[in-house]
Nucleic acid binder design. Structure first.
Length: 456
RNA sequence: GUGGUUGUAGCUCAGUUGGUUAGAGCGCCUGAUUGUGGUUCAGGAGGUCGUCGGUUCGAGACCGAUCUUCCACCCCA
């Protein structure tokens, strides 16, 4: 065999069944998005590097796929630039475009660029692939789909409330019950950092805290020490490590820690509002859970932070995330525009539904009847019938070649086509159709109206 | 980017301390059956053992590099 062709690592081909299952998830999400009043937009696969670089932290920059310039780009590089061997310096000179890394930053760019055509508050959804130059592992790909819904131009906390309802609505529609929507607030994290005298180390602090349930209390403290957070500060965090109970109990503990922090108390107030509203409205199947250690997400979140974890027992990272960002559009020159949004990880939801066997059985809607081809004249008569069936919205096809009957029958069998129609010399003369039901093997001779009637 | 792991027929996998012509099941093709698939029977095709290099009289097996798979870390959906 010649050298086998292949696709880049972290990418996948999808067959017809996989496409059908993916469409099912996508259509479900889309339906709920629209039910909540979001309008679709799309943005290019690649953006100017400048738009993306520096928006996701150093780690993010590393994971952005850069596109090599066209033409004789090397001729424009100076000897000094070659000699410097510095990627930070060299890369921008040979690459001016990059594949999008998420949908939020391109959306911010879109909002700023089209601000005069947009009605605010602007509610948009976007379902498109994104690319990350990451090392693949379970549920982690280099090309994957995000399904985002965001609102910009409103600071109302009712948006947060509605997004929680939207998460609940989507997962309920997908029969993915008992999804846990974890919520936290960046202001609380800022408040805690302030209280322990580590305002300037907010990111290090939150990243360490985020690992609590994964690496445990001691290792978290260790990491905080190594990042230069004081022993006294860490001691003040002690109540956090044993935070338990329902929403109100946890909030009570937090209040006692944060009583000197204005911003922290503001965060608590926001949380209480959201929780109060959700309690009032109720959720169908999802659970809302306060998780103070939740710090995931990008540096641009300023208020609420959301993350949805897969149901217990399924080893999968988060299947959705989101939050409030007060300042995202200011990096593109439009200050004071608050936004909040959520994202669904299509590819991970797929894996979870697969693992829990939650896809509906009738997900593929394939051909219902295949006409066997006996020759030119017979095929012509078949095509007439096929056309009539299609006009009745019955999925029908004619085998294109007058191959051996065994071959044509095998073909129908393999494709799980439930009915086969035979039109040979005999049927041609009597203007009838022999309909065979594949499962039972039964056959009956019919005229066209009866055929349509049975197959409809 | 760091550490580990995987690769043998279309698929799932055997293959002994390195030793003739690399096997099985399933699938595929042909026929039994010229107007009947899914069952049965008979026969058949298909592999540069991921790739490149090395050690050896001899490599699917040992060593190195590289690609790929999966996993952990970093980070993240």
């Amino acid at each position: 065999m010649a050298q086998k062709p292949s696709i880049p690592k972290g990418t996948r081909d999808f067959n017809a069944v996989e496409v059908a299952k993916r469409s099912y998830i996508m259509d479900t999400i889309k339906e709920q998005f629209e039910l909540y009043g979001f309008q679709p937009i799309e943005t290019p696969s690649f953006e100017n590097s400048q738009t993306l670089m520096g928006k996701y932290g150093d780690e993010g920059d590393r994971l952005i796929f850069k596109i090599l310039n066209s033409g004789e780009y090397l001729k424009k590089i100076s000897e000094d630039d070659y000699a410097s061997r510095s990627e930070a310096n060299f890369t921008p000179k040979i690459s001016e475009k990059a594949l999008r890394y998420d949908l939020t930053v391109p959306f911010a760019r879109y909002v700023v660029q089209h601000q005069n055509e947009i009605e605010f508050p602007f509610k948009r959804y976007q379902i498109q692939p994104v690319w990350r130059a990451d090392r693949p592992q379970k549920g982690r790909f280099r090309e994957f789909y995000q399904c985002d819904a965001d609102v910009v131009g409103s600071t109302s906390l009712f948006q947060e409330v509605e997004f929680i309802q939207l998460y609940d609505a989507v997962f309920s529609a997908l029969k993915l019950e008992s999804a846990t929507i974890k919520i936290n607030n960046r202001k609380i994290l800022s408040g805690i950092a302030e209280v322990i005298g580590a305002q300037d180390k907010l990111i290090d602090f939150t990243v360490a805290l985020d690992k609590l349930d994964k690496i445990g209390e001691e290792k978290v403290k260790e990491e905080m020490r190594s990042k230069g957070i004081s022993e006294a500060g860490i001691a003040q965090l002690q109540p956090l490590f044993s935070l338990e109970g329902d929403f109100a109990t946890q909030v009570g503990t937090l209040k006692s820690i944060l009583n000197s922090s204005e911003i922290g108390l503001k965060g608590i107030e926001e949380l209480e509002f959201i929780d109060g509203a959700i309690s009032n409205l109720g959720l169908k199947t999802a659970q809302l859970q306060l998780d103070v250690t939740l710090a995931r997400g990008l540096n641009y979140y300023t208020g609420a932070i959301f993350e949805v974890s897969a149901p217990e027992g399924v080893n999968m990272g988060s299947i959705g995330g989101g939050g409030r960002y007060d300042d995202l559009t200011s990096i593109f020159g439009k200050p004071d525009t608050s936004g909040v949004g959520i994202s669904f990880g299509l590819d991970r939801i797929y894996l979870v539904l697969e693992e829990l066997d939650l896809f509906p059985e009738t997900i593929t809607d394939a051909t219902k009847v295949l006409f066997i081809n006996f020759g030119e004249q017979e095929a012509m008569a078949c095509l007439n019938a096929v056309t009539a069936l299609r006009a009745e919205n019955i999925k029908a096809e004619l085998y294109p070649d007058s191959a051996k009957m065994k071959k044509q029958m095998t073909y129908a069998n393999r494709r799980n086509i439930p009915y086969v129609v035979l039109v040979g010399e005999e049927e041609l003369n009597s203007n009838t159709f022999t309909l065979k039901t594949m499962e039972t093997g039964e056959q009956q001779e019919l005229d066209l109206p009866s055929l349509i009637n049975i197959l409809r």
